[in-house]
Design a protein around this nucleic acid. Structure first.
Length: 507
RNA sequence: GGCGCAUUCGUCUAGGGGUUAGGACGCCGCCCUCUCAAGGCGGUAACACGGGUUCAAAUCCCGUAUGCGCUACCA
């Protein structure tokens, strides 16, 4: 499970030098998703995962899941499990990962610590990195000074070109250095061609000589990422554009290792309604939360993939297969997108309405149960659910729309009450109670004949007859079709509900 | 402060030298209808600003403004 480092690096180096020849062999598309297990799966991060996954499946490559857990304080195994669960829920799968292993494992950074140390050591020997004995405090104060005097805040450590005696002495004295990357003296700029943003250039003096290995011997993010991507033979790095300025640092690590850089694609960020970074302040942000609120995985995936990407067909409701088929880095725009909840709602509604009966019932039942209603899959329950399928945007809204079937004593809306109080309505209600009392069974047929008689007695017809009845039966001016309500309520409940609106006659 | 990225209807976006600047969400109206939805039809609304280049600029170039990101021994 653990390759000799030199061997891996030589292999990489040689493939990159003999490109033409080895091309076919090393041409495999390999992309990765590398979350840090410090919480739930944020939709912005999920979007990155989805894009990577779609891209890989489109190109018939390999998708790698790697856990970046070097931040010991914030990482947890629970979080890792939750993230994996959410990824599965969204429909993504991976070919290599911490849970299933793979050729280039291990896939947790904390299990790769030896590799980072080895690479750091190698880079030290090659002169591509150096030991820095600056303390955290010294680094901070240098930065403050630079800021105050208006100079560049890019740190150039005094130990960068220190003589061997100097650092040997420090080492002997028991001081533990960090290992910093050396930006080569001859380097003028780092240029790369981002697959989405185009050509990006950084002047060498603006690239910090960042810490690769901390004093506690753990790798920093930029270092670990580069080492892992190189060793795992990642061909395409697709990630948020907040990493754009990290890229030159990482490119320098690849060069120091003598490894060819992967291709980069920096996708635009997802923002909240106020154009700031999408966070809890903007409402739900984790995939888990959206699932709990009754959003469908496929709708979320579809919606997320349409943020900054568009199908050439201009269609918007796209199945997983179509997304895989049509995904194209060239069609990803380069500006940030705002997370529009109302459009997500609409799209989720589209998916809900598009479900066949069985699918819908199966997905709806748990939410009915969660709402404390009898979730028994009986014929009547199915009818109730189906009657509101076109009214909801999320499964969670089932409870709200379904209450009319279960609650006899809801307090009427004010506009409903106003309708119930009219003299005409009162006439209708009295006639209804009287007529309904006469029939044995208030099923659909019974209801129709009762209403015919009510119409005759009250002299009211059309919507002036039906709306008061709706209000009398439900306490609301809107809701599911009346027939299904009658059918599920039955005679007793119908009479009971209407009766409570009848005022005592004063005379 | 430095560096980097971005800027087309309120939002997601198409279009990338010649278009009545297209679609979707939202919103408004109409139709359907016992109601609300759904569905159908229609309407509202945009090229940040200033300079160039060009016969012609939303589109190419340069500036400005604004927003965002990075600037840690966080990721």
């Amino acid at each position: 499970m653990f390759f000799a480092l030199e061997e891996i690096m030589t292999r990489h180096t040689s493939t990159c030098q003999n490109r033409g020849v080895e091309e076919t062999e090393t041409n495999e598309i390999r992309a990765r998703f590398a979350p840090s297990p410090t919480g739930h799966l944020h939709v912005g991060v999920a979007r990155t995962a989805i894009l990577n996954w779609l891209f890989v499946r489109h190109h018939k490559g390999k998708f790698i899941l790697r856990v970046e857990d070097t931040d010991q304080a914030r990482s947890s195994r629970e979080s890792e499990m939750k993230i994996i669960e959410d990824l599965r829920q969204l429909g993504t799968d991976w070919d290599e990962g911490p849970d299933i292993g793979g050729q280039f494992g291990p896939y947790r950074q904390t299990e790769r610590l030896d590799m980072y140390r080895e690479v750091a050591e190698t880079l030290l020997k090659k002169g591509a990195a150096y030991r820095c004995f600056l303390s955290q405090e010294e680094v901070d104060s240098r930065r403050e000074q630079a800021l105050a005097s208006g100079e560049s805040t890019i740190l150039r450590s005094p130990y960068r070109d220190a003589l061997e005696e100097v650092w040997q002495e420090k080492l002997a004295a028991g001081e533990v250095p960090t290992i910093r990357l050396k930006v080569p003296d001859y380097l003028e700029e780092v240029v790369f061609n981002d697959l989405i943003k185009g050509e990006i250039r950084f002047k060498a003096e603006t690239i910090p000589e960042f810490v690769m290995l901390r004093a506690n011997q753990t790798p920093s993010y930029n270092f670990a990422v580069s080492v892992d991507d190189a060793l795992m033979k990642i061909s395409h790095v697709i990630r948020g554009d907040d990493h754009l300025t990290n890229t030159p640092k990482q490119i320098l690590v690849y060069r120091a290792m003598g490894v060819e850089s992967p291709l980069f694609a920096h996708i635009p960020m997802i923002l909240g309604a106020d154009r700031s970074k999408l966070s809890k302040r903007h409402g739900s942000v984790s995939v888990g939360q959206f699932m709990e609120e009754g959003y469908l995985p496929q709708a979320l995936v579809n919606f997320l993939s349409l943020l900054s990407w568009s199908s050439e067909s201009k269609e918007e409701i796209l199945s997983m297969d179509r997304l895989i088929d049509e995904i194209d880095l060239d069609r990803i725009s380069s500006s940030a997108a705002i997370f529009d909840r109302s459009k997500l709602g609409w799209m989720n509604g589209q998916y809900i309405r598009g479900m066949d009966e069985e699918d819908f019932i199966r997905s709806a039942l748990p939410f009915l149960k969660k709402a404390g209603r009898p979730a028994d899959d009986s014929e009547i329950t199915r009818k109730i659910l189906l009657s509101i399928q076109s009214k909801i945007e999320t499964l969670q809204q089932i409870d709200h729309h379904v209450s009319v079937f279960y609650d006899d004593d809801t307090t009427p809306d004010s506009d409903a009450d106003a309708i119930a109080q009219t003299e005409e309505s009162q006439r209708i209600y009295r006639a209804f109670v009287e007529e309904a009392g006469k029939v044995d069974l208030l099923d659909l047929k019974g209801f129709r004949s009762v209403m015919k008689n009510v119409q005759k007695k009250s002299g009211v017809k059309g919507k002036h007859l039906w709306m008061p009845i709706r209000v009398g039966l439900t306490g609301k001016t809107q809701g599911p079709d009346l027939p299904i309500i009658i059918e599920t309520l039955g005679k007793e409940h119908c009479i009971k509900r209407v009766r409570r609106f009848i005022q005592q006659e004063i005379s």
